[in-house]
Design a protein around this nucleic acid. Structure first.
Lengths: 157, 157
DNA sequence: TATTGTTATACTCTATAACTATA
DNA sequence: TATAGTTATAGAGTATAACAATA
């Protein structure tokens, strides 16, 4: 299962020889997919899915938004977001209100129940990853922090 | 949407002050999810989905494997893999053969068509990410390479 | 006519429970 | 009895196309 790169010892692997963008792209993609799945597997006890929580989290950070704004932010098509919004509304975690100026639009906002859930879920949701990160050296965490910043710029484009 | 951390300029953000594991966990998770979705959005022209390609890619790297082995590697339950295998078999990208010693088991292997598709798809699939990586500095790529190695260890646990 | 949101429809991915065949 | 794989069933996430309401 492991490639030649990952068969290195954990200690020696912390510093690697530079490699070209294509090879790094493959490794980074595979790792991102695995991390995504691993993170998702930690959420099985949650009341909401990863996608659903992402919407709640966005609303918590930014305040009310229209379905289209949320869909754009989450990089899904409007009908997909309509569905997710419907599920979250059924759970009474969000609510729809009419837009004050534009009758076509709808404003989605967190209910108190939704806001509470965001706070409680966040800690639990990140517990596994935080534990893993705690086992790393400060230098390794610094590397991940820097990488996160780079990736954030990259995915924002 | 952006936190105070990400509001730093791209240049100054390359070196960051250390922070605790919990905060890093949140940022890393959000970034991983966005990267995953961004990568997936680049695959719309592919003939196979991200999950399907992951199976083909594993078989290409490791050779024939049983459905259970593939399911474990992909971190899904056996019935889910049965379905994916069925779809890939319908596309004639993989084939099932009886296990030589154990009548219960099945060996899944790439067909020539599947092997060709893996090679062709890989380049196209990683083109977007490779382009992004090419725009980075060598030091940034090195940071991502080191981070990838750390994350690989982390997700392997 | 353009935009927002929804509905209709369909497909993939995933899971749990139950079943069949083999060890 | 235990294991490998599948089938049955269900739900979530996603998409495109078509529609209604509003600007």
């Amino acid at each position: 299962m492991l490639t030649k790169v990952s068969s290195q010892s954990a200690a020696s692997a912390r510093r690697r020889v530079p490699r070209g963008a294509p090879q790094l792209a493959v490794e980074l993609r595979v790792t991102a997919v695995h991390l995504y799945r691993r993170l998702r597997s930690e959420l099985s006890t949650d009341k909401v899915s990863s996608s659903q929580f992402s919407v709640l989290s966005m609303l918590d950070r930014q305040g009310p938004a229209t379905p289209r704004e949320i869909a754009t932010h989450e990089r899904v098509q409007p009908p997909s977001m309509t569905r997710t919004i419907g599920l979250l509304a059924d759970l009474e975690l969000i609510e729809r209100t009419d837009h004050p100026n534009d009758g076509r639009q709808v404003l989605i906002s967190l209910t108190p129940k939704g806001k509470t859930l965001v706070g409680e879920t966040r800690k639990r949701r990140d517990a596994w990853l935080a534990r893993q990160l705690n086992d790393l050296t400060p230098a390794e965490r610094e590397t991940l922090a820097n990488a996160t910043e780079i990736l954030r710029r990259l995915t924002a484009q």
